[in-house]
Nucleic acid binder design. Sequence first.
DNA 1: AATAAGTCGTGACAAATTTCACAAGTAGTA
DNA 2: TACTACTTGTGAAATTTGTCACGACTTATT
Lengths: 213, 213
Amino acid sequence: MAQNKIPQATAKRLPLYYRFLNNLQHQGKTRVSSKELSEAVKVDSATIRRDFSYFGALGKKGYGYNVEYLLGFFRKTLDQDELTEVALIGVGNLGTAFLHYNFMKNNNTKIQMAFDTSPDKIGTEIGGVPIYHIDELEERINGVKVAILTIPASEADKITERLVDKGITGILNFTPARITVPSHIRVHHIDLAVELQSLVYFLKHYPLDKEND
Amino acid sequence: MAQNKIPQATAKRLPLYYRFLNNLQHQGKTRVSSKELSEAVKVDSATIRRDFSYFGALGKKGYGYNVEYLLGFFRKTLDQDELTEVALIGVGNLGTAFLHYNFMKNNNTKIQMAFDTSPDKIGTEIGGVPIYHIDELEERINGVKVAILTIPASEADKITERLVDKGITGILNFTPARITVPSHIRVHHIDLAVELQSLVYFLKHYPLDKEND
DNA sequence: AATAAGTCGTGACAAATTTCACAAGTAGTA
DNA sequence: TACTACTTGTGAAATTTGTCACGACTTATT
Ligand SMILES: NC(=O)c1ccc[n+]([C@@H]2O[C@H](COP(=O)([O-])OP(=O)(O)OC[C@H]3O[C@@H](n4cnc5c(N)ncnc54)[C@H](O)[C@@H]3O)[C@@H](O)[C@H]2O)c1
Ligand SMILES: NC(=O)c1ccc[n+]([C@@H]2O[C@H](COP(=O)([O-])OP(=O)(O)OC[C@H]3O[C@@H](n4cnc5c(N)ncnc54)[C@H](O)[C@@H]3O)[C@@H](O)[C@H]2O)c1
């Protein structure tokens, strides 16, 4: 299933490239150079060429890349045809925002169901996504492979264990808790408070004339 | 102002360490080893020791680190005493969630004001933060150095330019747009759709028995 | 056909980050 | 005091990531 030589850093940029290529196509552009793309996504053009080269020779010298071809290629590579079902746990401030959004734009992911404990929310829908009681987690989550955690940090470990038991393979964790999982499960932490604090740290401690990330 | 040898990767972990040290203190622990801390924050213990070592010899061999001392040290290093004022632009789904949260937990940052265009919101408060019309940006934002962008992507460039003109130095950008700024301004992109997509990509293309990040 | 301009793909290098592994020192105990 | 168990701080090696710079090829133009 995998060309296993692709560096993680590259893999993280693929969805970004994909989105901007989509934008280009909608603008009616048929070709694009690594230089142009570089300006749009703010990634060095040599890095872009290198990233693409892991997948073979996708471009043409002196011409650049054909937008449609590249897009088709990434569509397959990123499994844009296959839908990944996602469950969201914790319909609070953050969870509600995600449900409204539902990562809809040209995506291969869909939040299929949500869970909470609050009686006000259970039985309702947000953005078309039904909200169930967390007690029903085990009976309803079958087949879902990815979970988004937007519950209080104190609940994170308990819920994680239940998710793992039900065979989840990936977790996007927005709680400040660093959860413990078996080694075959992938967790991405998005720690918004840390992001803000580290931005502030960089502003105060790093010279004002360096590159932006 | 800066010990300029601290690697960026280390700097990004500092707020994380700080938070967990705080937790430990609240639990009444007085000492901690890099090994224990490693299990809590899920960062290799050698990496933790290396990170700390950039600031000097903070620990004691055979003992570990004194929680209170370390915490005091990081408090100064992370400027926890000094308050950084933040403005939030775009009080929609995501912006509203942030206002309710306001990054309050033992933090040196505070969202001081918010801006939007919607008449329903202007003049109201969320989580104690006043919401002004975006037209008042220039007259109200004086002194604020950091902005959080939670507006539609199409507005991002325009608003960024206005923020830059008013002397903002750091932007936490949640829009999918890759904004253009002068080189002395720092932008951190948090691209939630990309995060979800890249998690899915890793699940499908990477061997199931590697470490989690 | 010849020339100029543009662009990829990549070898080679450089920089950043992580990890190993151990000497040196500390704490605790008897 | 002597002995054991622990843990730091860090050289050195390994790994990962990013960048430079150029040969080779394409397109466009005259
Ligand atoms: N809102 C933000 O801006 C923000 C920023 C940074 C981090 N976070 C983190 O994200 C998480 C969610 O934040 P929030 O602001 O949405 O909090 P919130 O309190 O608004 O939402 C939490 C939701 O989880 C539900 N819940 C509680 N226990 C549950 C359980 N056992 N099972 C299922 N649902 C349960 C609650 O009913 C509530 O609806 C928290 O861990 C928070 O620290 C939030
Ligand atoms: N909600 C999510 O889960 C989510 C996920 C990923 C990315 N995003 C991105 O975050 C951004 C915000 O998302 P959202 O869901 O909160 O959208 P939203 O539409 O709910 O909120 C946008 C808000 O910005 C305000 N606004 C519009 N133009 C403005 C202007 N010129 N000045 C000031 N305010 C203005 C609108 O009135 C609205 O309140 C978007 O760029 C979106 O793509 C959101």
